[in-house]
Nucleic acid binder design. Structure first.
Lengths: 332, 332
DNA sequence: GTGAAAGCGCTAACAT
DNA sequence: ATGTTAGCGCTTTCAC
């Protein structure tokens, strides 16, 4: 394993200038002539030189790397967000370290420690735990779930959807379809997004003159099809006459659809279903899932953009609440 | 538990020893007494010190970071592999930089350059392009697709499935179900996996006394449901009497199922379908997809393990071919 | 068993 | 406009 890598010193020698000059043209810091620039750039090109990022990072106390914390990359919703973040970051010369926490808070802590040791420039939290402590001295943007402290702290930005509105329009749609007893299934965690959606649900009910019945809310530990299936089974078997269900995630709703298929219950005739997120899978299930669309593709883009701006200190705290939209398909 | 950044110098001062000694106990390089060890470890614990990975990496010419190149993280198959790799790597103290190439070879090159600049310790290629050049001086493990040079090169390992066998058992199963005219849909790239599966298909046909008919193979540019849908439509409308289709990916097959549903063609009665990979989605579609199971969960684990061993020079070239299994469900 | 000191490859302050 | 040089925080000889 030969180490024939060139250093800035070699380039300086080859170009007949000092390392400082080479560094200046690489970083375009001015104070060099057009002529030297060409000379240096030529050598760099010719030898295919790339500065050692580790050395640079060590010197400037910051790596061109962003940590991305995500609860589960196999969830299509998160996968798309992460992919967007990553693709956007690379354009700006940054790399992304993806940290899949399996929804375990302890793992999250360990990841943060390692990221800090790597001197990362910033952190993007995709749907992280609500109760995390702020990370000192490191710019952070939170997607989907806003941590409790984020309002006040510097170096923290938030990007998310109008979840209350989402819960509201979903429920209202079910009501308009003539459904009388609407259940809701949520994730069983202290997550503000879930409570906002619940609030929207409650408000829609109230406007329709229905009282909020707590026995109609079912919570699951994890967001996946299996849990959606089980929750639906519970609702169907233990609560009677439910004719509409609002799921706080498409994956959950897909599980529900499976249950209704197995039991030969017709959707939306006997029971109407509505999801949340609008993942591609919505149009692959049968019947196609009616859902609340989140602009999650924009989450990633916005997050990448924001974190870079924060690193360059072009901006401090910011907050983006994106609108949601009902997308009509076949389950209501 | 102060969060201010301490350096090894501070720890040395606090513990009343030299930086060399601190470094020795951190890396457990011996040549220190039990007593000093305790002292140093106490201080480290007390101040919650973590060595700067950038400095360490610069010094040893290698970061505790592995690059992971993957064509599309939103493909559940890849997402699971990547997640496993990542979770396994973290246990060994390594971080993973995920590089989603969108199946674009040019992007792949750019990623490699950046990874090299970061002095990564190794690269794991998940289903990368077949025609990539070997990466010099960096251990690499290739999952799923074996590059053309990998046989010979040092520092390259391969992990994949017995694809020929997969194509063979899938086709044979279709034949056993009494299907007479079996089409195959593959990815339209110079990928050995695809050709192996095709070979298995051809062999099964031959054993059944059927001639290989090239008009029965349909190729798609990308592996997603939409392309599966289109390919299926083509097969159905342009080729007559096809009563079985073998898709080289579950995602493609899922798209096919959608097409048959839309056209009210009953599966498996009128046409039988079989996929490849065995992603979780197989049991969420209706009818549940019969498929060829790849042990892809083990891919990730094996890859993480192998790359670390290669970095420690415990092993050179290696090759793991995992068996595949037919999993019977409802589409044949 | 322990410490002093020389870098790793780079940037930036300070000269010139 | 360009060069010299002092570190960034760490590992690793080489002395003792």
């Amino acid at each position: 394993m030969k180490e024939n890598k060139l250093s800035i010193k070699d380039i300086a020698r080859l170009a007949g200038v000092s390392v400082a000059t080479v560094s200046r043209v690489i970083n375009q810091n001015g104070r060099f002539s057009k002529e030297t620039e060409r000379k240096v750039l030529d050598i760099i090109e010719q030898y295919n030189y790339r500065p050692n990022e580790l050395a640079r990072g060590l010197r400037v106390h910051k790596a061109q790397v962003i940590g991305v914390i995500v609860p589960d990359i196999t969830n299509e919703f998160f996968a798309h967000i992460v992919k967007k973040i990553e693709n956007e970051l690379i354009k700006k010369g940054y790399m992304a370290i993806i940290c899949d926490t399996n929804d375990e808070v302890e793992l999250e802590g360990e990841y943060i420690e390692m990221l800090k040791a790597l001197q990362i420039g910033g952190i993007i939290y995709v749907s992280g735990d609500q109760k995390i402590k702020p990370i000192e001295n490191i710019p952070a943007v939170y997607i989907d779930r806003q941590p409790n402290f984020a309002d006040s702290q510097h170096f923290a930005a938030f990007i998310g959807s109008d979840n209350r509105q989402g819960g509201y329009i979903a429920t209202k749609r079910l009501l308009e379809a003539g459904k009388k007893k609407i259940a809701i299934v949520l994730q069983n965690k202290a997550i503000a997004t879930q409570e906002y959606r619940l609030n929207g649900y409650i408000q829609a009910l109230k406007e329709a003159g229905q009282a909020y019945d707590e026995s109609l809310v079912r919570r699951v530990d994890f967001v996946n099809e299996e849990q959606g299936y089980q929750a639906t089974r519970y609702i169907y078997e233990e609560i009677h006459d439910v004719d509409g269900i609002f799921y706080s995630s498409d994956r959950l709703a897909v599980g529900g659809l499976k249950f209704f298929y197995d039991r030969k219950i017709s959707v939306p005739e006997q029971i109407a279903v509505i999801g949340f997120d609008d993942i591609p899978q919505c149009t692959q299930v049968i019947p196609n899932l009616t859902t609340v669309h989140q602009h999650y593709m924009e989450f990633g883009e916005l997050a990448a953009d924001t974190i870079i701006r924060m690193i360059h200190s072009d901006t401090g705290y910011s907050k983006h609440i994106l609108p949601v939209e009902l997308v009509e398909r076949e389950t209501v």
